[in-house]
Every structure is written in C-alpha cells, then in structure tokens.
C-alpha cells in the first residue's frame, strides 16, 4: 500500500519533471528567432521571420521564400517586361501558367461578387494614377480617367487554364490588389515550419512563435500608435489603408486604392483590415471593402467567412462580429 502510494508520487513527480523539461525543449529546442527583410519584390518591404535551429537553416529557408516571392513577382508585375502580366497586357493573347490561372479565377469571381469594385481590368485607370504618384506634378485629368475607364470591362478578358486574351486593345490588367496575397499563400504552402511573413501589409502567420503562443500582429493607426493587436495562427491578416502608398498635392493626399466608380482614391475609410485563412481572399476583400459601404462589405465578408475591421474617417472602429475573437 505504502509502496504503491510512493510509486504514484514518484510517477507524478516524474511526469511534472518531464512536463517542465519538454517545456524547456519546446521553447528553446535549439530554436531561435531569425528575420530577414527583402526590398526587391512587389515594390514594397517584405519581412520574413521564422524560428530555426541555427542561422544556416534559416538562411536556407529564407532563400526558398525569397526565390518564391521573386518567382511570383516576375509573373504578376506589369512593369516587368518578362512577366506573364506584361505579355497579356501588350500582346493581348498569351500562354499562362497555373499561378496566373488561379489568380484570374479568383479575380473574376470577386469582380462579379463586388459589382466591379474589385476590378483587375482597370489597369488603364490605375496606370494614370501610378504615373501621377511616381512623377506627376498635376492630377490625372478627369477626361483621361473617364476614357480609360471605358476600357475596363472584365467581360473582355477571356481565359482558360493555359491561355489569356483581351479583346479590347486599350484594356490592361493590374494585379496590385491580389498578387501579394497570392504570394503569401504560395509561401505558406511551401513551408511547414513556424513563420510569419509580412509583404508590405499582407501578413501570413504560420503556426506559432517560440514559446508556443500565437503571433502578434499590430494594426497601425495612421494617426499614430496602433488600432489593435491581433493573435494570429495559420491565418492571414491584410490591411488596405490610405497611408501606405500616396502622393500629396496642395495639401491633399491621393492614395493608391482607386474607386472603380468615382475613378478617384476612395474616401470612405482610413483603413480596412481583413482576417482570412487565404491571403489572396483577404487581399481582394480588403481592397473591395475599402470601396464599399459597411453593410455591403459586412455581407461580403460573411459570405467568405472573413472578419473585418474598418477605421472610419472620424477615427471610430467598426468590426464584424467575430473580429474581436482575434484581438489580444
């Protein structure tokens, strides 16, 4: 009797000991956090962070991620003369790879579901704004925007899984609203370790950070500080905001998210943040919701099982019902 009690005490102690040592192993296990920043993809700053056994292991991993990002950027960048996007835009008929096909499928779906608020076919309009942000001293002319917008009908894009063609000679595609999301998903499919990737506001958090807790993602308040901090694991968080890419003229800020109806930067919100397991869906939704009223946006988010946070112009926040579940 006494022996068995002593035995069970011993067992409990050994179990506790094992628990603590495994905790030690789990939190350290020779694992250290490493981080690398790339500035040569998607015309933005990308940071890749992962927990690895040593520097060499991380360098290998980082190389894999960087290569994948460069590969995808080289497909969707409309300014890269060797890209698939460039070929479609200039030749109006091109052979496409599966990456392009997948993005075209989702883009077409979003075009239909958002009544054209998310429109990758409005490249001709976006290029006028891009030109202004890059070098312009004056705003794009209203007439120029109007005539460009006459060539932005997704129905003039025809594609199969091997080919894409544009039947309007003045229409071009722009993948700015979807390419980073697709890239984040592609990286997440490639890796089976714990990592967090931030492609200029497009985050994918895979697994957990060292110590086993979820990754912390801060959502910036453009007026200073943070709007909120999210706990993320195996999920993507994407923010579209008026503070990310813009140019000011005469004290007015002209940002990069152009409303397909007004043809001017959308003025409904300061930022919209989306949480979804797919970064491509989150990317597309953040752009679409930035240009939609809250109720339509809420319905669309619900349809995709996404959570959303709007920062209105007066600074107040609006959330979908489940958004708070992710907030720390």
């Amino acid at each position: 009797m006494r022996k068995s009690r002593r035995g069970s005490i011993k067992k409990i102690i050994i179990a506790a000991l094992l628990a603590v040592t495994s905790l030690t192993a789990f939190s350290s296990c020779g694992q250290k956090r490493f981080s690398e920043t790339y500035t040569d993809v998607f015309d933005t700053v990308t940071t890749f962070t992962a927990c690895c056994q040593n520097k060499n292991k991380f360098a290998e991993l980082s190389q894999t991620v960087h290569d994948e990002l460069k590969r995808i950027d080289a497909i969707f960048s409309i300014y890269n003369e060797k890209s698939s996007a460039f070929a479609i835009n200039t030749e109006k008929n091109a052979i496409i790879c599966d990456d392009m096909y997948q993005v075209l499928l989702v883009s077409r779906e979003f075009y239909d579901k958002t009544g054209g608020k998310l429109n990758i076919a409005m490249g001709s309009v976006l290029s006028l704004w891009h030109e202004f942000r890059e070098n312009g001293r004056s705003l794009p002319e209203k007439e120029a925007l109007m005539s460009a917008s006459a060539h932005a009908d997704m129905d003039n894009l025809h594609f199969t899984d091997v080919n894409a063609a544009i039947s309007d000679p003045d229409m071009t595609l722009d993948f700015g609203a979807v390419a980073k999301g697709y890239a984040a998903d592609a990286v997440s499919r490639l890796l089976d370790c714990d990592f967090i990737l931030n492609i200029g506001g497009n985050v994918y958090a895979g697994g957990h950070k060292e110590g086993g807790s979820k990754w912390s993602v801060g959502v910036e308040n453009p007026d200073g500080g943070l709007l909120t901090v999210l706990a993320a694991s195996d999920v993507s968080v994407v923010t579209s905001g008026d503070y990310q890419r813009y140019r000011e003229l005469n004290g007015v800020r002209y940002h990069h998210i152009i409303d397909s109806e007004t043809l001017y930067p959308s003025v409904l919100y300061r930022s919209v943040t989306i949480i979804h397991t797919s970064s491509l869906i989150a990317d597309a939704l953040s752009t679409a919701l930035f240009c939609m009223d809250i109720e339509s946006g809420r319905a669309l988010a619900l349809e995709y099982g996404a959570e959303a946070l709007w920062m209105k112009n007066d600074g107040t926040l609006v959330r979908t019902d489940g958004f708070a579940n992710y907030e720390k």
Partner: peptide, 22 residues
Amino acid sequence: IVCLPNGVIVRITGNGELDAVI
C-alpha cells in the same frame, strides 16, 4: 518606418515585440 527609395528601414526592437505591424 520605411524609406523605400533609399532602402532605409527604421525599426524598434525589444521586449514584447510585435511580430508584424501592418
């Protein structure tokens, strides 16, 4: 804070660091 044209990144590191800020 990022200055992309100059390739300059200013980052606060330290305790309780956020893993990403967007």
